[in-house]
Design a protein around this nucleic acid. Structure first.
Lengths: 156, 156
DNA sequence: ACACGATAGACAACCTGGTTGACGATATGG
DNA sequence: CCATATCGTCAACCAGGTTGTCTATCGTGT
């Protein structure tokens, strides 16, 4: 009865589980030809591939300032995951899109995530995993992509 | 029955759930007289209260450099959560301990976490929540306190 | 036709939280 | 008694974020 976990264990375990998955993902990505990949990049690449075409755009969908988004794009450009080209329709804008390398990173990430989920399913059982996912969905905001991952440390 | 979630949803939901809890904690802490509290501070205060008495110590248990730990202590000292005093047995060391304010922050955090867990239990049901916690425990390293929270962004 | 407001991107200065490397002061053990 | 290890600090740097300001361009209303 009084064997309930203390309240602080829940957030800690959630975070640890997240870390375990993300760390594994990046270890595997490094093995598969993406040593430059960083935790943050995945989110950004995903946002770009889902239609964020400019820095302002990206900032909006990521929940950060356009300047932060701009820096992110710059970093991704440096390591060859995205490229920018001027928009002929609007010369103020520079359109960002994934390079082949960036697309590859995303595809491999998806595949690795699926593999990791399968491992969880094997360990916990399909039903338990589905229940876990459903419960997390219940307790979190619906929009999966509007997590402003960046900057939640730093606060304010 | 191909309705399985894509692999990437799991880590995202884990992180969102973590964020939801932490954000709520800090909103509530701010209301309860701890507006200076930040996500990182909780972990550090906890580590100190559990016996990390010096910067080197703290760095070790937190998994960061002694310099980073020193900066953390400095910041906590500035907002009045810890205080330092020279160790008479070893004049190189400065012993850190929580102030009354720091202890209060920790106690309130624990209480708020418990309240949040109760809300989860109400929504999901006790059994589901216990199952969720058990499953997370299964998939994560056993030592709850050796999550090197800081610096997992930044990478490398 | 044009002036004016809104927008895109860039630059600068700053914050947090991390890193390495170096260094002086103190402890400690052969 | 001296070599070595440890503690704290300083300095320089990095990643990722912030705000504020600036220019160039777009698009709209009169």
């Amino acid at each position: 009865m009084s064997s309930d976990a203390p309240g602080f264990e829940l957030p800690l375990r959630l975070f640890m589980a997240f870390r375990v998955l993300i760390d594994e993902l990046h270890a595997e990505l490094a093995r598969q030809g993406h040593p430059d990949m960083r935790p943050m990049y995945g989110f950004v690449l995903q946002a770009i591939s889902r239609g964020s075409a400019t820095a302002v755009d990206l900032g909006r969908t990521l929940g950060v300032s356009k300047q932060a988004a701009g820096k992110m794009i710059e970093a991704l450009e440096r390591v060859g995951y995205v490229e920018r080209s001027p928009d002929p329709k609007d010369t103020r804008r520079k359109i960002v899109r994934l390079t082949r390398h960036g697309t590859d990173a995303l595809a491999r990430s998806a595949q690795i995530f699926d593999a990791m989920r399968n491992r969880w399913a094997k360990t916990l059982g399909h039903e338990r995993l589905r229940a876990l996912e459903a419960d997390l969905r219940t307790m979190t905001p619906p929009d999966l992509w509007r997590l402003d991952v960046p900057g939640w440390f730093g606060g304010q």
